[in-house]
Design a protein around this nucleic acid. Sequence first.
DNA 1: CTGAAAGCGCTTACAG
DNA 2: CTGAAAGCGCTTACAG
Lengths: 355, 355
Amino acid sequence: MTAKTTVPRSTTAQQPPAPGKATINDIARLAGVSKKTVSRVINDSPLVKPDTRAKVHALMREYGYAPDPQARGLAFRKSFLVGLVFDNPTAQYIVNMQYGVLDALRDTGYELVVHPCDSKREGYIDGIRRFVLQQKLHGVILIPRVSEDQALAEALREIDCRYVRIASVPFDEAGRMLVTQDRIAGAEAADYLESLGHRRIGLITGPKRYRSSIERGGGFLDALAKRGVQVPPENVYEGGYTFESGVAGAEQLLSRPDRPTAIFACNDEMAAGVYKAAQRMGISIPVELSVVGYDDSPLASQLWPAMTTVRLPVRDVGRQAASLLLAQDASQVAVMASVTPHLVARDSCLPPQAG
Amino acid sequence: MTAKTTVPRSTTAQQPPAPGKATINDIARLAGVSKKTVSRVINDSPLVKPDTRAKVHALMREYGYAPDPQARGLAFRKSFLVGLVFDNPTAQYIVNMQYGVLDALRDTGYELVVHPCDSKREGYIDGIRRFVLQQKLHGVILIPRVSEDQALAEALREIDCRYVRIASVPFDEAGRMLVTQDRIAGAEAADYLESLGHRRIGLITGPKRYRSSIERGGGFLDALAKRGVQVPPENVYEGGYTFESGVAGAEQLLSRPDRPTAIFACNDEMAAGVYKAAQRMGISIPVELSVVGYDDSPLASQLWPAMTTVRLPVRDVGRQAASLLLAQDASQVAVMASVTPHLVARDSCLPPQAG
DNA sequence: CTGAAAGCGCTTACAG
DNA sequence: CTGAAAGCGCTTACAG
């Protein structure tokens, strides 16, 4: 028996809704229209008289009303969640991608759900399918390497799930693809080293099963060939995109009598391995050896000398991918979206020493 | 007029539900029980006869039924989403944390929604409040530095939002806190360097507004003092947790005539800066200078020589934080959960040179 | 341009 | 231990 007055749960004398707690019914009642009309305003239907729309909008703002995504989702039979599916890229890549996607999702009512997976595991596609189906995802964004898996894309199409694939080759139709021009970037690295005067050049690629590796390395070799520089097979080492494989590759390339005066590693981790091997062998970077990496990871600028590398604006990529995904209902995209990475010249390259 | 037969939408002759498309009604009908009973099975109510439960479970498995989180959420007035709120830690930290949280969420029906924010921006708490309220989040996990903000925690309590704070000091009650013992780890670094024989020791801290910085640096200095080693103020440099501030700090510490024989930097980025400064100044690590970092970032093992650093098992932390969050309804946690980081000795420390 | 009815797939509150 | 009714906050399908 306290003095506290309790408000009856269901009263017909309508109270103003608590801030952030208003429902479509509150707004409808306050506006003197049906909830269907409010629904029309929410969904930007043209079938609303401007006056009515304005009044409803004002009320929505006043009460801080935002439609409940769960209720909306239930009625729409889809959620307002976008999934980010990735296998195992670098932390920096994942995080930048997330920031970019969130940039595009901000104030759209969509949220980002993260879903790492292991594409080497049997049945990983089933896991993704369950995730999509159960959460009734609006769509998913696929990052390399899962983006390169045609079976996964097919499975998603089968269950009618929107998706955008980020990959270095147009594996899919426009509107569902965001191409990163790794081949062009590889060529840029080649042009840079050749124009510095390097002729004996080494290449440390990633694993062949990564399309990015093929594009980066292939673009590099092709561009060199175009400039008349041949890279003999013994100057090409297939690494595993890991630091250790970079060390191993560099040790092999640099222990040959006619050792290269420049090395292009297809990611920064391996390039860092080149640094380590060079230091161990007493080979000075950049005087005796030029090094170019790929990714512009934080590492690149924190090594000494700061590393020349290739930068993909990952956050932009994420932003564009999310925009593509949200636009899929509205428009039939005709042109293939693409982003080209560029060389960031720092201190790890110099013309080769005379002699 | 094609030959294609269309199935009437609402037929009374019930069809078996498509895989992954069954609803509670399908399961109820097939089991010959009410949907309320199926609901009880879903929610592990004890008020179900074992036989009934078994039959329902069998059917759920057979049809790959999983309750719709949106419908459940709408009825429960809360979603099955957990938010991860962070300001600006390193990419590796964020990603490991996400992996850990997802480990704990796997097969629970909960999903992870990421929410970066800028704690320096006016009204950032409002943004988080809106996020929580609109998505009706099950709860949020707060990472340093947002986890250190009492106003944010208060705002969350006000709107009745579950949360777990990860921080280096018990800012909150048990069950809502996961303490990382940065102070103890700082002491471990001190003990290690002192036991190697170092007496002139430098310290590069993070910004004072980070509690982690205070704990790491404070723990380090206290432990040294306990062993009789005083660190004069001119051997302490306040950095900004950035590479550049590490370079600047090391340049200052190392240009003094009685320069330190060892430096502890409160994160790896700054420690990498120490490497760079040392190389520039021609001071050899570890022979002339020992370096200890903090974080065990990928960088640490990819520098040369490989860096001795302090490792917090971030993935475990994420896992534990998520478990705490999910357990908040069930149990009143009595003991404060905590995790202690440990020193990872590599190649960047040696006893000081004679003389 | 607007609205009343039914429904999305679950749960709560109540009754038995 | 089980179920029929009403409701969560939205939308679709239909009618006007």
